[in-house]
């Protein structure tokens, strides 16, 4: 248990806080990698998910490929892309985007698929075009499940972004691999605690976002 107190002491030690390799800078890097990966994954996955959810076509393909993507070992992708493109940010980013896409994609199409078919029928009967149906009915009603998908993607990416440091990028993983090399358990634990802390903060933000969306949807 005293590893925990040592780890917390390590985090609070001013000597570890400042500078480009300090706790603040590494945390900011870690958060930045996470947001960038989730954002890129969303840009790819949300339109695709809406297309599948709206047309109902390609669902089998999406389910199968998300299953396969889940089997893809992130460490393998990181090292593979690292070997091909060299060390730096690109390799971990590719891996993290691949990690995030399945959850976001599933959230996007499941959100539309879960809408009561009678609601869709009613909207069509009122004379909505496909575009109107998508933007005024399907996207708003699908928002809670989409948010849920982005949330679980973010959670996975935050935890996995520690691997970025293995191929020379930054983030909180730096402390982890440094500690691993020198058998410095408090430093490794400190890195883990910081990651969990960031995850908790992001979770809280998503919780608020989900409640606000739910309230909006009831009012509208």
């Amino acid at each position: 248990m005293n590893y925990f107190t040592e780890a917390i002491a390590w985090i609070l030690d001013p000597a570890n806080a400042e500078g480009s390799g300090g706790v603040w800078a590494r945390s900011a890097e870690h958060l930045w990698y996470t947001l960038l990966a989730v954002l890129l994954a969303s840009v790819i996955a949300i339109p695709l998910g809406y297309l599948v959810g709206h047309t109902g076509r390609g669902r089998g393909l999406v389910v199968a490929s998300t299953g396969a993507a889940r089997a893809l070992p992130t460490l393998g992708v990181v090292t593979l892309v690292g070997l091909i493109l060299g060390i730096g940010l690109v390799a971990p980013l590719v891996a993290l985007v691949l990690l995030a896409v399945p959850s976001v994609l599933a959230g996007a199409y499941a959100g539309i698929e879960a809408i009561d078919p009678r609601t869709i029928d009613a909207a069509r009967a009122m004379g909505m075009s496909d575009w109107q149906l998508l933007t005024r009915v399907e996207i708003p009603l699908g928002l809670p499940l989409l948010l849920g998908g982005v949330r679980s993607a973010t959670l996975q990416v935050v935890a996995t972004a520690t691997l970025a440091a293995y191929v020379g990028a930054g983030g909180l993983g730096r402390f982890l691999f440094l500690g691993l090399k020198t058998q410095d358990y408090p430093q490794m634990l400190a890195s883990a605690l910081l990651v969990v802390l960031i995850a908790l903060i992001l979770e809280a933000l998503f919780e608020i976002a989900e409640r606000v969306t739910a309230r909006r949807l009831h009012v509208v």
Partner: peptide, 18 residues
Amino acid sequence: AGLLYAIPSLPLFVVLPT
């Protein structure tokens, strides 16, 4: 259960033995 999932796996592998 959700928070458990937020713990990065590598440090868990390292810290669990302690």
